[in-house]
């Protein structure tokens, strides 16, 4: 009602119903056009391309081309790294967040920890790889210290920064903070009354955690796990800067394929990218579904 009055008072504004409706929609046209052109269509191009022959016909050959041992191995090692770093990120991030929220540490620690997590979760990519090379690389700070001071040679123990575990440990640098950022509000959401109600009903602290707190947190934990998984799976820059092309993981393979068609089949590149969308898509669908569940509970 009042909008109408105001519009009429202005005079120059579009009067009448017939111009009003399209006007509403005109406001989102630039955004819709941008998203369509630079997000939706490029993605669709990849998805469709994955099912197309070079001359435009439908085929499943590209996708089935993924099921060769070297590509499957790349997916497998990618999934393993992503999953391991997600699990460890969840566990360590949870432990740190729980220590700060529930462990009786001074409240003053919280703000700085969350700020630092915000920074660290964004400190990914090339510089992160350099930081870890300078720390755990062959002449890195920790490597040298362990060798010269404690006589422990990481290389003899089978550790190499350019390997599965090297990459996983590096990924943890952005995985743990992301976990802290997401799980801290969830831990805050555990009401004091639940603990008190459980305790006055006779439950021990362990029973409270097993029967109440953990089940309540579980959707957030699993959801964050899925998110961290997708986060690691799509990470390209860190992997390339750290390992060059020595580690056969999907983002590196796709990067090389886009650069120079190393697979010798342009449409196999589409399929490779399509596979990435599918994996991260599934992980995020799980995240969204579980988050909706936990929000319903906590309403």
């Amino acid at each position: 009602m009042s909008t109408q009055t105001a519009t009429q008072a202005k005079g120059a504004a579009p009067p009448g119903q017939f111009r009003r409706l399209p006007m509403h929609w005109l406001g989102v046209v630039p955004f819709a056009a941008f998203v369509l052109l630079f997000l939706i269509l490029p993605t669709m191009k990849i998805v469709i391309g994955a099912f197309q022959t070079p001359d435009g016909g439908f085929t499943l050959a590209n996708v089935s081309g993924l099921f060769t041992s070297s590509i499957l191995a790349a997916y497998w090692i990618s999934i393993k790294i992503s999953f391991t770093s997600a699990i460890l990120g969840c566990l360590i991030g949870f432990a740190m967040a729980a220590a700060v929220v529930l462990g009786g540490l001074p409240r003053a620690i919280r703000g700085p920890l969350l700020t630092f997590s915000g920074v660290a979760s964004n400190f990914a990519g090339v510089p992160l790889a350099f930081a870890f090379l300078a720390t755990l690389g062959p002449v890195g700070l920790v490597t040298v210290f362990l060798r010269s001071e404690l006589g422990i040679d990481l290389r003899l123990l089978g550790f190499n920064i350019l390997s599965f575990w090297g990459l996983t440990i590096t990924y943890l640098f952005f995985q743990i903070p992301l976990m802290i950022l997401i799980i801290t509000p969830a831990l805050d959401g555990l009401k004091r009354e639940w603990r008190e109600a459980a305790s006055i009903l006779g439950a021990t602290n362990a029973q409270y955690w097993r029967l109440v707190a953990f089940p309540i947190l579980l959707p957030s934990l699993l959801g964050t796990l899925a998110l961290l998984f997708a986060n690691a799976f799509g990470a390209v820059a860190t992997a390339i800067a750290l390992t060059g092309s020595s580690l056969n993981i999907v983002p590196i393979l796709l990067f090389a394929q886009i650069r120079g068609d190393v697979l010798g089949d342009p449409h196999l590149g589409y399929a490779l990218a399509f596979g990435m969308i599918v994996v991260t898509g599934i992980a995020n669908a799980i995240y969204i579904w579980l988050r909706a569940r936990s929000e319903r509970w906590l309403k």
Binding site: L41, T43, K45, I46, G234, M276, I277, T280
Partner: peptide
């Protein structure tokens, strides 16, 4: 969506499109 679709896939789409 840009958090879901890896950047490398998006830019791959740009190059082809």
């Amino acid at each position: 969506l840009p958090l879901v679709i890896p950047a490398i896939v998006i830019v791959f789409g740009y190059i082809r499109l």
